[in-house]
Write a protein that binds this DNA or RNA. Structure first.
Lengths: 203, 203
DNA sequence: CCTACCGATCGGTAGG
DNA sequence: CCTACCGATCGGTAGG
């Protein structure tokens, strides 16, 4: 927190500001002059810290990808049955989304503004992450802590759909605390909204 | 299906092409020259059909909003208990998403490129739509076809999270047919992935 | 629906 | 980190 007229502290500040703007207006909706203004600079001054706008997007998206991967790594190290590890995955995901909204939004929604090579890397990272969920869900089906006939592929997609949407509606300080949010999600994902009796007889 | 060199048929063709490009590259990632090329025209030729780029986004997004609203209206006219009407809402939503992917994507992800007035209208339309889900979920809780202690506000968000994510992963002609998709969603949403016994005891 | 064109803005560089 | 500047592209108009 130095005086705001002394200049930008580092490349990391530029990347962070880029994350903010990419998340709010999108990559193509953000100009380098917008970004410079956010930092109290003039457009051309950015280029002493970074190489290009495209490079900036790569950095922000990679931060998002790494945060999710690190979270998954920690969760997978959890001991316990499928449900216990799913809880760890969900809680970790919630933390990443709420503590790094800008990078998460950019990771989720701006990846197709990347060049083909980097977009491929990001899609691969998403696949790996989704695969961790599938592994845990299959483990749960096998160890008896989840429905035995569960389709882990589809279930992983559904669970991640709920998790990735969080940043679109959750407001910190609202009626749901963060731990309550985690519980609500687990409750929904594990038990659904049907009665305990009616839940099996659909169609 | 006239010869492709005779020129564009109507304003609706321009709007449809705009939907395609806005969905694929985003509003700010699409130039009027891109759009013209998609129709076999030159940039300036578009302006005999439309007023402005911003206007085009409004039209595409409004089509998306109307499709969802009409679908909800039909579903709400269904007789039956909460579960029956939820089924109708889900099936209708799946149809809208899969039959109008471009307009849906643009509606979901490009609304913040709208001017403030139109963005407000779109957010209001989303709120109305979400409210229909809440109504049906509360009805289900009251009529005994769903869990009695269900929080309809949160549940509506979770169900819509699953539904809105469909266009991000579902591929027609893949391993899941459309009716199977609807059943998978209902099964997940109603019963979750827990065992019938374990589903209640989370935390 | 095209030709010809407009002012504004884009990402980025040279040089200090 | 700024001054001064670049060629390219942007959304859009006049006039036919």
């Amino acid at each position: 927190m130095t005086s705001s007229k002394v200049g930008v502290r580092s490349r990391a500040d530029v990347v962070a500001a880029a994350g903010r703007l990419f998340a709010a207006r999108g990559y193509h909706g953000t100009s380098m002059r917008d970004l410079a203004k956010e930092l109290g600079l003039i457009g051309s001054s950015l280029y002493s810290h970074i190489e290009s706008k495209a490079d900036l997007l790569v950095e922000v998206v990679e931060v998002g990808a790494e945060l999710f991967q690190e979270s998954a790594d920690r969760a997978m190290a959890t001991t316990g049955d499928g449900v216990a590890r799913l809880r760890a995955l969900v809680a970790g995901h919630v933390d990443v989304v709420l503590d790094h909204r800008d990078e998460v939004r950019t990771f989720l929604y701006e990846a197709n503004a990347l060049d083909e090579a980097h977009r491929g890397k990001v899609l691969a990272a998403r696949d790996r992450y989704e695969h961790e969920f599938r592994t845990v869900l299959q483990a749960g089906a096998d160890d008896g802590s989840m429905r035995a006939d569960l389709d882990s592929r589809t279930a992983a997609i559904f669970v991640l759909s709920v998790l990735n949407a969080i940043e679109r509606w959750y407001r910190p300080g609202g009626r749901l605390s963060r731990p309550e949010l985690v519980e609500e999600i687990l409750h929904f994902v594990m038990g659904g909204i049907g009665t305990d009796l009616a839940s099996s007889k659909s169609a």
